[in-house]
Design a binder for these strands. Structure first.
Lengths: 337, 337
DNA sequence: ATGAAAGCGCTAACAC
DNA sequence: GTGTTAGCGCTTTCAT
């Protein structure tokens, strides 16, 4: 009923506990037939080493566990990232603890505290807006940290991001190049780093074309599908509605698309690619990021830190890819009438 | 540089280690001002309890860690499920270890072994085709196990599945009701339980309508987007091509849609809903499952086991939802001329 | 209210 | 080759 220990195995094999330890650890210096007897006892008892106990004693190696903390595990972008990080971890014999923060600093702290209490060797986090000073003690104690998707303002650690600003600028420029001048911006909370960057890119593009921003066309703080639909409806009800819009993330794009009749009466470019984007009418033009590359880059950074790299923190910025399909290239037309 | 221990805190606070332990654990019987001194030392040193060491000694409670093993963390269905399980776990103060099996029994074993070696209290797994006898020892030692998405053939444990057969039958019946008689089946490996169930549902529907299966129209083993496109092309090249098709999972549906011109020349019903399904032309008719419900059901079962429920294993079967949009209802027409 | 000793399951450092 | 002792960081038990 209880979990067998090395002591039990030792007894069953008629050897000392230390001999069992050596066999289990695969160390040399055990005669082949004692080893065989031990292995037999192991099988008979269904023994498996308690790695927590092992790690307690053997501090040279870590726990071979890393923590991964993201906004929302269900978000396709993060899901892909998680998978690529888990692949890298598995390849190296590590396991990964995951947690969602929901963008709440409080939950982020709880999750990270639970992870560090379990002695993770490293942490890959998508930092919330909150502070991260609580990470100082574990970091001084040797826990490695890398940020992904966005930087933590009060943490100078390896960080992997995407050039959001450049990507957004490209998207909006595309719209401008197609003759649009009234281009709406629909984004999530401005406080989120990726969103303020993308908004900056929107501004960049307008400015480069000598256009001023019309505050009426800018909608921040869209947290959900429904929020996006609402914002779209309000935009279309404007006396001088936009002829095009830039959607700053996938859930907003989905909301917008859901609120529109077909064929789409307004030009759209979205940040983040979507599975069926190509099959839409018109096919959706997007700025796409590569979550797998982001994840594996972050994982490689983390593991090289865990392996002892103590060089200055690296800031890796990956580029986005602009995929021109057709939704941004439609002729200018008025939304209403 | 090193992680402070209770010993360090005790020294800094001028008390015994035991007193520190009591304060940290929030036990009664410590005078308010000694507690205050301890807490101050804790803050000063940035002390955090080592829960692995704690769990080693304190066997009454578990490790407050559960393992979650799925096919592929990047799959949207599993991603949603993971998130809902993580929410339930977080609510209860548990953390979750995750791993992808890639449907490889070997990797499944590696991942699960790594989890049990870390003394997880429970495991939620999407079992691969392989055997699971290796789970016997940890289960006897008290590790709780629940299966999700499909049963493990050699494990009698709580299992949460969806009525795949019924869902598929409904989908194919819908196609039959619209006059189709040549309906193709495109599925992943038949060995995967969900796939054989869905195929059975396909057969059920045909049989109920007095139709025989045409082996030419049945394609198993489609593992990827590309496989699905290939199968579709082969089907359309048939002398007597199908007028409709049932796609047995989301990646196949995506592949099929990607291989088709617009408007779609063939009727389609897919298993699994897709984000932009409604925006397609024609809107895609699907059988949808609720991954969040699947996940939370599994989590609740697991936690009640962890909390001591030793009743007979439960088999929960959730229903699918048929979402008739328009892709299945198109008039019968021949694929090629 | 506080502390000392023992021990959880294991490995490091020495014996033999 | 194999066994003994000590101790990782903590909690249990029993003193005081």
């Amino acid at each position: 009923m209880k979990r067998p220990t090395m002591k039990d195995v030792a007894q069953a094999a008629g050897v000392s506990l230390m001999t069992v330890s050596r066999v289990i650890a695969g160390e040399a210096g055990v005669s082949p037939d004692t080893a065989a007897r031990v292995e037999q006892a192991v099988r008979k008892l269904g023994y498996q080493r308690n790695d927590n106990a092992r790690n307690l004693r053997q501090k040279r190696l870590g726990t071979s566990t890393v923590g991964l903390v993201v906004d929302d595990l269900a978000n396709p972008f993060y899901a892909l990232m998680v998978r690529s990080i888990e692949d890298e971890a598995h390849r190296r014999g590590y396991v990964v603890l995951v947690g969602s923060t929901n963008d709440e600093p409080r939950r982020e702290r709880e999750v990270i505290a639970a992870f560090t209490a379990r002695q993770v060797d490293g942490l890959i986090i998508v930092p919330t807006i909150g502070g991260h000073q609580f990470l100082k003690p574990p970091m001084e104690a040797g826990t490695q940290v890398v940020c992904v998707d966005r930087p933590a303002r009060d943490l100078d650690v390896d960080t992997v991001t995407v050039d959001n600003r450049d990507g957004a600028r490209g998207a909006v420029t595309h719209l401008l190049d197609h003759g649009h001048t009234r281009i709406a911006y629909l984004g999530d909370r401005y406080e989120i780093w990726t969103q303020s960057e993308r908004y900056a890119g929107y501004l960049d593009a307008l400015t480069a074309h000598g256009l001023a921003v019309d505050p009426d066309l800018v909608r921040h703080g869209l947290r959900s599908h429904g929020d996006a639909q609402g914002a779209l409806a309000a935009l279309r009800a404007l006396p001088d509605p936009p002829t095009a819009l830039f959607s700053s993330n996938d859930v907003i794009t989905l909301g917008v698309l859901d609120g529109l009749e077909h064929p789409t009466p307004i030009s759209i470019v979205g940040f983040d690619d979507l599975p069926l984007a190509k099959q839409l009418d018109p096919p959706l033009t997007v700025v796409s990021q590569d979550p797998v590359a982001v994840g594996s880059t972050a994982a490689n950074l983390l593991f090289s830190r865990i392996d002892g790299d103590r060089s200055a923190p690296r800031k890796v910025v990956l580029l986005t890819r602009f995929i021109a399909r057709r939704s941004g290239a439609r002729p200018v037309q008025r939304v209403s009438d």
